[in-house]
Design a binder for these strands. Structure first.
Length: 422
RNA sequence: GGAGGGAUGGCCGAGCGGACGAAGGCGGCGGCCUGGAGAGCCGUUAUCCCCUUAACUGGGGAUCGUGGGUUCAAAUCCCACUCCCUCCGCCA
């Protein structure tokens, strides 16, 4: 959530251009501005009236203690009450409306973010690794997995529907191997492990920016009013909600493995084959709470942490700086890391690493107290480190043999006990 | 699921209709004292919103788990909900 000062002066201009750059219409902002005017007026009216009432009450109490007659004053006070009643209701209504629309406004991109419309305007900032070459036509991972019987796509469909799969045997083992491998990396880089709830309440969903705008993307359990987490970023964001941290405590590095549940409501018919886009997948998420002045440095560091994992697995990748039009709602700056997948003949996004500045900490109310006594909202960062499916795709497709086998990357062998999946 | 107890400022803890944004203590901050530190003493010590201002300048409003209600007036009374603790039941 943005600072309300964005509704005035220079900052308003900044907000406008940022909305345009992100491909948002200005209609909603005009609506907000209109509501805000009414809101301020009502606040003033109500507060003034309350001041008057408080004054009367004070006089009444003084007169009562002196034993004087207060009937007339009582009547006046009751009249003020009547006026307040409907004004207050109006005020409550307009404040709710205001908060709702304001929570729909995305973050302001950092000045280093390229302005652009869509992914074609993203900027590749570096590439690593050698693209594998084959003497045969490399197959897509779904064909390989089916033949090796390590992922059962049909069974997933029968149990839960499309975009669900069943990992079997070495497939399941490889999945756990990756998860544990990622966990060990996170630990090595100084992140502290968290196991959060996989279901969270509405407030927590709001804090990280999923609600109210992306309600349709979430699985919701009506009976208990709980949402299934779409990423560990959601519970991690709220770990310090309504807390004020000490300056010396920062930065705080956390990581968590969770399954991630997404309805993929806008993706009908897209990426239906294989495990590229599923309703449930596994991910190890990296998360940082930092001082505002350090967040961009920490952002670069987080990207390097994730790169190191891919390098150790010898996966060719490129780091892409997203343009304004392609960035997520909460983000001020995002790098995607895309891994090369031979069977697809191209790159797939495997990690998204964002600095959201104080966008989430405002929603969750997470502050830091400076030595000077001044309080600021902390900055938060999140990054996949990593999600398993697309890394798995890359490993399977890049390491396939002519016979349809898959050579397991050296660092993962110790978890499984085999070098090659036959 | 059933029965009972509880939720107050950074923390502990009083208050149970009016002068209470809230006693007292601890902690924090500033000062005195000291060669320095400690002890001691004095002072200070929340957040948010609106209007105003060069300014946290001045004025006002709100906040004692959350949301309602009673009252001229609620931390205090009533109702609902949430969370925590204890006991019983059920269960991996």
């Amino acid at each position: 959530m943005l600072d309300l000062s964005y509704l005035k002066g220079e900052k308003l201009e900044k907000l406008k251009s940022s909305l345009i750059n992100r491909g948002y219409s200005l209609d909603i902002l005009e609506k907000i501005l209109d509501i805000d005017g009414k809101r301020r007026k009502l606040i003033k009216e109500v507060d003034d009236l309350r001041a008057k009432k408080n004054e009367k009450s004070k006089i009444i109490s003084q007169m009562i203690s002196k034993g004087e007659n207060v009937d007339d004053l009582l009547k006046e006070a009751r009249e003020i009450d009547n006026m307040l009643e409907h004004l207050e209701e109006e005020r409550r209504k307009i404040e709710n409306e205001f908060n709702y629309y304001w929570s729909l406004i995305p973050n302001i991109p950092h000045q280093s973010v390229p302005i652009g419309k869509d992914s074609s305007d993203n900027v590749v900032v570096r590439e690593w690794g050698r693209i594998p070459e084959f003497e045969f036509e490399p197959k897509p991972h779904w064909e390989i997995c089916e033949k090796l019987d390590i992922i059962d796509f049909n069974m997933g469909g029968e149990l839960a529907g499309s975009r669900f799969v069943v990992y079997k045997g070495i497939g399941a083992e490889l999945e756990w191997a990756l998860i544990n491998y990622f966990r060990e990396f996170a630990k090595k880089h100084g992140y502290k492990e968290i196991i959060p709830p996989f279901l969270v309440n509405e407030r927590v969903m709001f804090n990280s920016g999923q609600l109210p705008k992306f309600k349709d993307e979430m699985y919701y359990i009506e009976k208990d009013e709980l949402y299934l987490v779409p990423t560990a970023e959601v519970p991690l964001t709220s770990l310090f909600m309504n807390k004020t941290l000490d300056e010396e405590e920062l930065p705080i590095y956390y990581f968590a493995y969770t399954p991630c549940f997404r309805r993929e409501a806008g993706a009908y018919g897209k990426d239906v084959r294989g495990i590229k886009r599923m309703h449930q997948f596994n991910k190890v998420e990296l998360y940082k709470f930092t001082l505002p002045e350090n967040s961009y440095e920490e952002h670069e560091k987080m990207v390097r942490d994730v790169e190191e994992i891919l390098q150790s697995l010898n996966i060719p990748y490129r780091v892409v700086l997203l343009c304004t039009g392609d960035m997520g709602f909460a983000s001020a700056k995002t790098y995607d890391i895309e891994v090369y997948c031979a069977g697809q003949g191209g790159y797939l996004e495997a990690s998204s690493i964002s600095n959201v500045e104080d966008f989430q900490s405002r929603r969750a109310n997470i502050k830091v107290k400076r030595k000077s006594g001044k309080k600021d909202f902390v900055h938060t960062l999140n990054g996949s480190g990593l999600a398993t499916p697309r890394v798995l795709i890359s490993i399977i497709e890049n390491n396939q043999t002519k016979e349809g086998y898959v050579v397991i990357p050296e660092p993962l062998r110790k978890y499984i006990g085999v070098d090659i999946i036959k």
